[in-house]
Design a binder for these strands. Structure first.
Lengths: 242, 242
DNA sequence: CGAATGCTTGATGTTCTTCAAAGGTTGTGG
DNA sequence: CCACAACCTTTGAAGAACATCAAGCATTCG
């Protein structure tokens, strides 16, 4: 197993605030291994109390909740740098499930160590709270999108957000990035039917704004998309990396 | 100003995990005052960086986001025991606004002290993270409700959740609790129009499940409501009080 | 080659929105 | 103390956005 904390590729990215050397040393101890899983592998299950926490090193996944009758709500998409399992880590229960969409590589941490993190590394504990608050903020925006925006606006909003994350993570080349999800995933994220999502995507494509084919998302008209999405196309703010 | 930490009425409630005496002493120092505001007073503004954090001692309020064009999404309702301003506290910016719906009394904390909390009181810091994760979990459920449930299910779900909170906080008498919001607030919480929300409420009323009139919510058929809501009517789990 | 999966498109329904208006309550100024 | 405005709730009617149903097409995989 490659212990890569020191030369973790994610640390190079501007989106992540730099570690101090002391922090890096602690994180190396906090880490207990590395995990690689295939696409479509369940990582965490809603309602369960996972013994492990992860930071995504590579690959994409999906966070989702399942209702009693099988309806599915995609809560967010998972990208490199995301810390997953925090809810189980602090509350003892996950509020949603996470499944890989591609092959994924994860940094594995011991859930039992989280308390020692709070006791001996207040700066890292603060970062953890920062991440939780950040996720809360994002879910608030998602709520506003699903609740208030039309299907066209919502799809534009989501694709733009995904692209912004892709850019921050260096996944883009020119105006394209890999987007290894199904239209059904997007539909479940927006509370729309697959059919209507498909037709809405077609509308954005007809307008020459985006093109999402074969797992690749292309942004053809940034300002046009931004107008429909109702948010500016700007860089994401730096965030801590756990 | 009454320094009431020691005999804070909220501490009596089972929903809140008890303070240790040491924690209580620290909280007393963390607290810098008490604030009472009228109904319909803005407490925190989206995008701003509030210098103060609050714990709600009494009264109700509304968390909401406003879109560029004025559409409003109610993110959650605010009840006694809620800690507000955490996003500004850790990220330096609020993701939503908060306005009082009734007269409210708030415990005021100094935002600058939050860092000392992390350094010297890891247990309290952990509680803060717990709260953030808990809010994240709730927003995930809300997302699933807005995205997947029908109007009838969504209204039932929301009223049940509100009543569960009311019970945990001792606001209920028999099957009633004060619910000082407008139908428009509920509509904005669910992404529905006011008209449709009204008609949906009438439907639940016709079925003899709930009655919401003159600021009082009555639950007439708990099991029936629970069935429509799609979640069990059970007590909320204990949570930390900050 | 057949089966499975995901994308696409047309036709038909239903949920929900918008528009419009009226009734009840509260507060305020004349 | 009445008149009037402001606010919230309620109800009916018409229209739009989105869901459901159904089927065809392409690609992948065993």
């Amino acid at each position: 197993m490659a212990v890569k904390c020191d030369n973790c590729p994610l640390r190079e990215l501007e989106i992540f605030v730099p570690f101090t050397t002391e922090e890096a040393r602690f994180m190396k101890g906090f880490k207990i291994g590395e995990l690689t899983v295939d696409a479509q592998t369940p990582l965490l299950i809603e309602g369960s109390n996972a013994p492990q926490l992860y930071t995504v090193l590579a690959g994409q996944g999906v966070r989702f909740k399942t209702l009693e009758d099988g309806r599915r709500q995609v809560v967010n998409f998972v990208f490199p740098g995301d810390f997953i399992g925090l809810q189980a880590g602090v509350m003892g229960e996950m509020g949603h499930s996470i499944t890989s969409a591609t092959e994924m590589t994860l940094c594995v941490f011991d859930r039992a160590e989280i308390w020692s993190l709070f006791k001996s590394h207040p700066d890292r504990a603060f970062d953890l709270t920062w991440l939780a608050a950040s996720e809360e903020m994002f879910l608030g925006e998602s709520l506003a999108t699903i609740g208030q925006r039309s299907a066209l606006e919502a799809v534009a909003w989501t694709l733009q957000r995904l692209f912004q994350r892709g850019e921050a993570l260096g996944l883009t080349t020119a105006n394209e990035m890999p987007l290894p999800f199904r239209q059904q995933d997007l539909a479940d994220a927006l509370g729309l039917s697959l059919v209507h999502t498909n037709k809405t995507l077609a509308k954005l494509k007809d307008r020459g704004m985006v093109l999402w084919q074969d797992g690749v998302l292309g942004i053809l008209d940034r300002t046009g998309l931004s107008d429909v999405a109702g948010i500016p196309m700007e860089a994401l703010r730096p965030r801590p990396l756990i």
